[in-house]
């Protein structure tokens, strides 16, 4: 039979060999693909080596996640501090972190991480870190490295303010203020509320106006544009000595 195949191959000018080689090439490509897929699937990898690889990958993933979380925290802190830098141009003071919860105090107070050693004195104004620099409170007790701040709109706090040119008395209600403004004065939501005693600085904006047909005055509600609990840094203005 072998002699016959050789004779046929010789008589056809190597056609049998060509056909054989082409078939072999196709089978080889198919089989090598299959072998490669089987090898990559890890079916034949040892369980121990896979466990070691898993542990190494898991620890590397935890390290990368930790670095990503730190980057996010630093970016947030940088953005908060960047928002405060413009306040330095207009008033001499110091940036301080908020070191307590905004809601822990039943008296409308919170603590900041700056005190007498940093130049903070009792009565210093505390501004928010946003573009407008609203007065969020006033230092009522300054210790060496921390201070207690009374919120502007703490319960039972009252102060004179101007809204749309009119002088009104604002009463703190815990997080927001309320004032009675004569009905003849045109007010709009978003009007700035300024306090002359604070150097004309803003303490909030008009959030809503309620007009009652019976009363001669309109109830104006005043609040900060942004939530207090979003502030992580504040700016303390030094008092003129």
């Amino acid at each position: 039979m072998v002699v016959c195949i050789v004779a046929i191959d010789h008589s056809t000018g190597g056609g049998v060999g060509v056909w054989m080689r082409m078939s072999e090439a196709r089978v080889w490509v198919a089989c090598s693909g299959i072998m490669r897929e089987v090898a990559m699937s890890g079916f034949f990898s040892s369980r121990r080596s896979l466990m070691e690889e898993n542990a190494a990958l898991r620890s590397r993933l935890a390290l990368i996640q930790d670095k990503a979380a730190r980057c996010d925290a630093l970016e947030e802190e940088t953005n908060a501090l960047r928002a405060i830098t413009h306040l330095v141009e207009n008033a001499h003071g110091i940036t301080a972190p908020v070191v307590s919860s905004w809601y822990s105090s039943p008296y409308g107070t919170f603590m900041i991480g700056a005190g007498l050693d940093d130049g903070v004195m009792q009565g210093s104004l505390v501004l928010s870190g946003d573009a407008a620099g609203f007065v969020v409170g006033r230092v009522v007790r300054a210790d060496a490295r921390s201070s207690l701040v009374m919120e502007t709109f703490a319960h039972d706090m009252s102060f004179e303010a101007t809204i749309a040119g009119a002088s009104v008395l604002v009463h703190g209600k815990g997080g927001y203020g309320r004032a009675a403004v004569p009905r003849g004065i045109a007010l709009a939501v978003g009007d700035a509320v300024r306090v002359p005693a604070y150097g004309g600085r803003m303490v909030g904006v008009v959030s809503s106006v309620h007009v009652d047909a019976v009363n001669t005055a309109q109830d104006v509600y005043i609040a900060l544009p942004s939530a207090l609990d979003s502030l992580t840094f504040v700016y303390v203005v030094f008092k003129n000595r």
Binding site: S104, P106, T109, V140, R141, L148, A154, M157
Partner: peptide
């Protein structure tokens, strides 16, 4: 403890906690 921590001197009300 709440009064010592959070009460503001000069507030228009006494420490109540």
């Amino acid at each position: 403890l709440m009064d010592v921590l959070w009460y503001a001197p000069g507030a228009p009300y006494p420490p109540m906690c």
